[in-house]
Amino acid sequence: MTHALSAPQQVASAGTASRPVVRCALAGGMVAGPLFLAAGIVQGLTRDGFDFTRNAISQLALGEAGWIQTVNFLVTGALLIACAGGLRRELRDGPAGTWGPALVAVFGASFWAAAAFEADAGAGFPAGAPDATALSGHGTVHMAAGAGGYLALCAAFVVLARPLAARGHRGWAVASRLVPVAVLAGFMASAASVLAFTAGAGLGLLWLTAVTVRLVAAPGES
């Protein structure tokens, strides 16, 4: 009888103990976007020849100080993958608990791929680089990784709209289905404006922060 009574208590104790671990993992999703963008903005304002209207943040990985942006990619990817693990524990069973974390993990892995395969020089950066950009093999992989990662993120937002709605945040759920449209619009406009591309990418990162905070603040069924 004693063992029968103690088993539920042990399960509850294990669940309570794991909760701080889950929140710590989810914190990765909360800080990944702001950290990546803040590091990129500071570098863009201090690196010679970099112009936000002509250059993508990815190009900051080029040149002598490029290691800073490479580390930024690696750290952001690690934080996003940790967030994916936290989302899996938070959302538990169901489509959202399976596909949402998996898609966020793909997004995180795309940052590691971007670190491994540098963007091409061009548009005057690094200093002395020609205006024209010649697409190389590593540059192609870099672009493909970024495109694939953001497509996964957009899909994750649509999937995560379900637990948001289930927890009573229907406005957030609607927004989570609309934000991918704005993100993809920014990517489509990148040929005409690098700033549009940067804005779309930044919006995706910041919306993931907002969604993660909302899910943590309102636990419930997925």
Rank of each mutant, 00 (worst) to 15 (best):
Gly137Val: 09
Gly168Arg: 07
Trp172Asp: 13
Pro101Val: 11
Leu135Asp: 03
Ala116Glu: 00
Phe107Tyr: 15
Ala155Val: 02
Gly139Asn: 08
Ala144Trp: 09
Ala175Gln: 07
Ala155Arg: 01
Gly148His: 04
Ala102Arg: 15
Arg170Gln: 12
Trp112His: 14
Ala165Ile: 02
Cys154Ser: 12
Ala156Pro: 02
His169Gln: 15
Val141Trp: 01
Ala105Ser: 04
Ala152Thr: 04
Leu164Lys: 08
Val159Asp: 02
Met143His: 11
Ala119His: 11
Gly108Val: 08
Gly137Ala: 10
Pro180Phe: 09
Ala115Ile: 06
Ala121His: 06
Arg167Asp: 11
Glu118Val: 02
Pro101Glu: 13
His169Ser: 14
Phe117Pro: 04
Val179Thr: 08
Ala155Lys: 08
Ala166Trp: 11
Val174Phe: 07
Ser136Ile: 08
Leu151Thr: 11
Ala173Gly: 12
Gly108Pro: 11
Val174Gln: 00
Ala145Asp: 03
Gly168Gln: 07
Ala156Arg: 11
Val104Gln: 07
Leu153Gln: 04
Leu178Tyr: 00
Pro101Thr: 13
Arg162Leu: 10
Ala165Ser: 14
Pro101Asn: 10
Asp131Arg: 01
Ala113Glu: 06
Gly97Trp: 00
Ala109Lys: 09
Asp131Cys: 02
Gly108Glu: 13
Phe157Leu: 13
Ala161Pro: 02
Phe107Met: 15
Asp120Thr: 01
Ala116Trp: 13
Ser176Pro: 03
Arg170Ile: 05
Gly97Ala: 03
Ala147Arg: 10
Gly97Val: 02
Val158Lys: 02
Ala161His: 03
Trp112Tyr: 04
Ala105Trp: 13
Leu164Ser: 03
Thr140Glu: 07
Gly124Trp: 01
Ser110Cys: 09
Ser110Glu: 13
Arg162Thr: 15
Ala132Gly: 02
Ser176Ile: 08
Ala175Met: 14
His169Ile: 03
Ala116Cys: 01
Trp172Ala: 15
Gly171Ser: 05
Ala115Asn: 01
Ala102Tyr: 03
Leu135Gly: 02
Thr98Ser: 10
Tyr150His: 15
Ala102Lys: 11
Trp112Val: 00
Leu160Trp: 05
Leu151Ala: 14
Trp99Cys: 06
Met143Asp: 08
Ala127His: 03
Ala145Cys: 05
Glu118Asp: 11
